[in-house]
């Protein structure tokens, strides 16, 4: 017999009991735990998503701040470079101006020294030439230099053209009517009168002539009004010598500056 009613009923009951027991011990528990786990995973994923979004936001913020700082840094660097360049230019300019000033001072000092040296040289040369001339003249011709100077001075006065004479007279003070005769040596009375005579001839009138020994005139004699001077002295010969010395000094200083530039 394939079908047994008792067995069928018993199996139905068994099956219903099994449904109840498995529902209680298996399905409800397992499904509950699976749902809880699913919920937990969903929650965690949601949390992770939120955290990720927050982290991304924070990252973006940090990135923005970093870019801002970088920009500011670049600006500051550019400003610093600009300031440094400006400062450098100022310092260079300052240094150059100082160098120029010092160079100027130095040149002035050199010039002063040169002028002083030339003046001394001229003075010494004049003295030397004068002494030498005096000795040569005395030794060779038995003449005094002073006499020759006076003689030549008188000759020169005699050779004055009319225009030169008028030019000389024009500068004589009309009220005081004074002229001066300076010499580097003491004139004898005879020589003074000779000079007086020839000057009065030139002027054509009586004037007050003052004779004076002037150490400034190293070796010579001169006559002067308020604004005009006729002189006969050794200094005139030395003007050329002074020019030669000046030229030699200039060339020497140029050569020195060229050497300095090459060394630098």
């Amino acid at each position: 017999m394939l079908l047994d009613s008792f067995t069928i009923i018993a199996q139905i009951i068994n099956f219903l009991i099994l449904i109840y027991l498995l529902k209680r011990f298996l399905f409800n528990r397992i499904i509950k735990i699976m749902d809880e786990r699913e919920k937990q995973i969903t929650d965690r994923m949601q949390d992770a998503k939120t955290a990720k979004e927050a982290a991304q936001k924070e990252l973006d913020e940090q990135q923005r701040i970093r870019e801002e700082l970088q920009e500011k840094w670049n600006e500051m660097l550019a400003q610093a470079k600009k300031d440094a360049q400006k400062k450098r230019e100022e310092l260079v300019k300052d240094a150059r101006s100082k160098i120029d000033e010092e160079q100027k001072n130095w040149r002035e000092a050199i010039l002063k020294q040169r002028t002083a040296f030339l003046r001394d040289l001229r003075h010494l040369s004049c003295e030397q030439v004068c002494q030498m001339s005096r000795k040569v003249l005395a030794d060779l011709a038995g003449e005094k230099l002073e006499n020759q100077l006076i003689e030549n001075f008188l000759i020169q006065l005699g050779k004055l053209t009319k225009e030169e004479k008028n030019d000389f007279i024009r500068f004589i003070d009309k009220d005081e009517r004074k002229i001066w005769v300076d010499s580097s040596f003491q004139l004898t009375g005879k020589k003074e009168s000779e000079i007086r005579k020839i000057l009065e001839e030139i002027i054509g009138d009586k004037v007050e002539i003052n004779f004076k020994v002037s150490p400034k005139l190293i070796c010579g004699i001169e006559t002067r009004t308020e604004g005009k001077k006729i002189s006969w002295n050794i200094e005139n010969y030395l003007d050329g010598l002074e020019e030669q010395f000046k030229k030699a000094f200039t060339e020497f200083s140029f050569q020195e500056s060229d050497v300095e530039k090459k060394e630098n």
């Binding site: 027991l21 011990f25 528990r29 809880e36 786990r37």
Partner: peptide, 18 residues
């Protein structure tokens, strides 16, 4: 069969964790 199923279910679901 019922006993095996229930026994396994009961034993396995005693200490469920998530």
């Amino acid at each position: 069969v019922m006993l095996i199923l229930i026994l396994i279910s009961w034993l396995a679901t005693r200490n469920l964790t998530i």
